[in-house]
Design a protein around this nucleic acid. Structure first.
Length: 425
RNA sequence: GUGGGCGUAGCUCAGUCGGUUAGAGCGCCAGGUUGUGGCCCUGGAGGUCGCCGGUUCAAAUCCGGUCGCUCACCCCA
């Protein structure tokens, strides 16, 4: 037999692993629905151009793309937002705003795998489309935070780091970055935490055209985590003051929701994707050991770019891989326990049709029922019942048949009672 | 794409200064009379030691390549 291997970067989900995935998906769904979001989905394969033209060139090198049999250049979806924009582009004009949608797609990227990053993952996407106020940004972050809390994670386990591209743009102007150096500045800031100090300084001087004093001012600025301090320091500049207002509203809303402790201003959060336009955020484990658990922000131009109604939008994506690692680290993975309500121990082939009748009736009532598919010793049948996680074993033998009852054994306590089959529920 | 580490039963691993038929625990299968699970006892299946090649009388063990996993870089959902 040929030796078929799983493709690199893909996962199998035997029942014990699927249980964790289902546990996470269930929590995500409950929270999204609790916040009034509706579930949607789209195709896992899209035209390549949807990503090439709309997400920025940076994403293209890692697409899982190919030519289909009709000669179309297509790609497995690497993220959901362009699909959302495309789907809404066709129909948003007729829809009441704001649109609150969520989905849990499987996404694909062709790149070398490492911890927390495979060639596929599932990602909870939650978006509000058609509302430009900071209230929508706050609502979306609240969903992300509650999604993690629903899984048992708390303020000691993760934090949201929040920034705003408009604010950062205004502040960069205030410390002396020229307009045409802004993209370079964003690129450096996005990576600045992962760079040694001298390399960061070198790039600020060379690529962002700052002088030493400017670089110092920028470094100090990036460490600031207080909106009040920013207002005190830069509030006389109109651009900064205008950009601070939505963030202040945002922070106030999250405080009112009791989530203020989870949220921290961090101007070093830029997010790679080119389509973000406003508030951006990432969720990290509190230890800072893992990759980001979640990232999102405002992308007010994307729908228009794919030819739809010009609508503001904000949303996030939360992947299952890093989250699974964090849950495992915090001992929050529920133990896998198979379970059936009833297991039938059948003594003697002549009892089999009787057993099938009982099983069928219980199943029709919604109970889960299993039994051995061939004649086996009672001892073996009880072992099988144990393995199946049976809550109750029903013993059906000649003695019981003669009396018109079954013996029902509670597997946890060992207690047995005699009961008429019709009385089972 | 670049570099480092690792690759022995389904799982976790032992075994390498090269030397008879490669081991353990767990799991799996069968049995301990078809009337009772967990504990226990007995027996069994299961490995071309990732793959290919080289060195050698002899390779799981040394060497080269390759694939896979993993970590870092790159990049980021």
């Amino acid at each position: 037999m040929a030796d078929f291997k799983r493709l690199p970067g893909f996962r199998d989900f035997p029942p014990e692993d699927l249980a964790l995935r289902a546990h996470v998906f269930d929590a995500w769904r409950r929270v999204a629905i609790r916040y009034g979001f509706r579930e949607y989905d789209g195709p896992p394969v899209e035209p390549l151009d949807l990503y090439v033209e709309k997400s920025g060139e940076e994403i293209v090198g890692q697409l899982y793309n190919f030519e289909d049999k009709g000669g179309r250049t297509v790609s497995l979806r690497p993220e959901m937002t362009p699909s959302l924009a495309r789907i809404l582009g066709d129909r948003s004009r007729g829809m009441a705003k704001p649109i609150r949608w969520f989905t849990i797609p499987q996404l694909f990227r062709y790149e070398r795998q490492q911890r927390g990053r495979l060639r596929e993952h599932y990602q909870w996407n939650v978006d509000i489309v058609g509302e430009e106020s900071a209230a929508a940004d706050a609502e979306v972050l609240a969903v992300a935070i509650d999604g993690l809390r629903e899984l048992g994670l708390g303020v000691d386990d993760f934090r949201a780091r929040v920034s705003d591209r408009r604010l950062l743009t205004a502040l960069l102007g205030a410390v002396g970055v020229q307009d045409d150096r802004l993209p370079a500045a964003f690129a450096v800031i996005d990576k600045i935490e992962r760079m040694p100090e001298d390399k960061a300084r070198g790039r600020l001087l060379d690529e962002v055209d700052l002088d030493d004093a400017g670089a110092d001012r920028l470094r100090a600025l990036l460490e600031c985590s207080s909106l009040t301090e920013l207002r005190n320091q830069f509030g006389e500049r109109d651009a900064v003051r205008d950009a601070l207002a939505p963030l202040e509203e945002y922070a106030a809303i999250l405080d009112a929701m009791g989530m203020g402790d989870f949220v921290k201003l961090d101007l070093k959060i830029v997010r790679g994707l080119a389509y973000y336009t406003g508030i951006v955020f990432e969720l990290f484990d509190a230890q800072g050991e893992l990759r980001a658990i979640c990232g999102g922000g405002r992308y007010d131009r994307l729908l228009e770019l794919v030819g739809g109604e010009p609508l503001p939008a904000v949303g996030f994506g939360m992947g299952d891989v890093v989250l699974g690692e964090l849950l495992a680290e915090r001992d929050l993975v529920p133990p896998y326990r198979p379970h059936v309500d009833y297991f039938l121990v059948v003594i003697g082939q002549e009892q089999r049709s009787h057993a099938l009748g009982i099983a069928t009736r219980l199943r029709a009532q919604g109970r889960s029922v299993a039994y051995p598919l061939r004649d086996q010793s009672v001892r073996k049948q009880f072992k099988a019942a144990e393995n199946e996680g049976a809550r109750t074993v029903l013993v059906l033998g000649p003695d019981e048949a003669a009396e018109g009852i079954v013996v029902a054994r509670d597997m946890a306590t060992g207690q047995e009672r005699r009961i008429a089959p019709d009385a089972l529920e």
